[in-house]
């Protein structure tokens, strides 16, 4: 579903991501772990076609992000770490805008908005302007918008930040449901317990380079993910 091959992204002479290779199969929840500034967000933005990259190749569902970014974007949804949304729109206007761009039919958008907004207890607030939303509500709106066009791949950057425990639980269930239906999820997180419980595979990145990846069992072995992460971080120092 997502193939990252030798990805290198430079900011000037500094390599934010250096020769990164990953493969995410349909049905997988893939966790992406690393300290602040390790290159997680840069990698994610390259996968979504937001950032251009110097070397390597990214393919989504067999289509190159470089060669046909539009086709790739039609099959994915992105949830950023800080959901800066259009303050000048109401929640429902934003969802309708997203549905228009993806060509979601009127009937489908009605049922999906109702379903996902209800799941996140957002329905009553949909007429409110986004400027009146709290951080958590914006995050919920971004999640509803992401599921609205039923993408094959969902890429999330710190999706649990700002969510209340109920919404976080709902999101985890949705992620599992999505992957059970043949979709894939690639997400970054700092919450190692969540990654440990939720992910089928995990990758650890440090200073732009991949330092470990594989199934949870392969990476973790007999330790906890936290121990492995701390050990790997320590080893590199």
């Amino acid at each position: 579903m997502l193939k990252i091959e030798g990805l290198t992204k430079l900011y000037g002479s500094h390599a934010a991501v250096d020769d990164l290779t990953l493969r995410i199969q349909p049905g997988e929840i893939y966790g992406f772990i690393g300290h602040n500034g390790a290159g997680k967000t840069t990698t994610i933005k390259c996968c979504c076609g937001i950032l251009r990259f110097e070397k390597g190749e990214i393919e989504i569902d067999g289509v190159s992000v470089k060669k046909d970014p539009l086709a790739c974007k039609r099959t994915l949804a992105y949830i950023p770490d800080n959901p800066d949304m259009y303050q000048f729109m109401s929640g429902i206007a934003y969802l309708n805008f997203i549905a228009d761009i993806f060509g979601v039919s009127a009937a489908e958008r009605e049922s999906r908005i109702s379903h996902y907004a209800d799941l996140f207890d957002l329905t009553a607030d949909l007429a409110q302007p986004v400027s009146a939303y709290s951080h958590g509500m914006k995050q919920k709106l971004a999640i509803v918008a992401a599921f609205l066009h039923q993408p094959k791949l969902i890429i999330m950057d710190e999706p649990f930040v700002g969510l209340d425990p109920i919404a976080a639980h709902t999101l985890k269930e949705l992620m599992q449901e999505h992957c059970a239906g043949g979709g894939a999820i690639f997400f970054s997180t700092h919450v190692l317990e969540v990654a440990e419980k939720l992910c089928d595979k995990v990758a650890i990145i440090k200073e732009g380079r991949l330092i470990a990846s594989g199934t949870m069992a392969e990476v973790r072995g007999n330790s906890s993910l936290e121990d492995v992460f701390l050990e790997l971080e320590g080893d590199e120092k």
């Binding site: 549905a99 228009d100 039919s105 009605e110 007429a127 409110q128």
Partner: peptide, 19 residues
């Protein structure tokens, strides 16, 4: 601003350019 409660209405598709 005074809180407005959302009431579901019939939705319409809009072409990308118009959106």
């Amino acid at each position: 601003a005074a809180k407005v409660k959302y009431r579901a209405r019939e939705m319409h598709e809009t072409p990308v350019e118009k959106a």
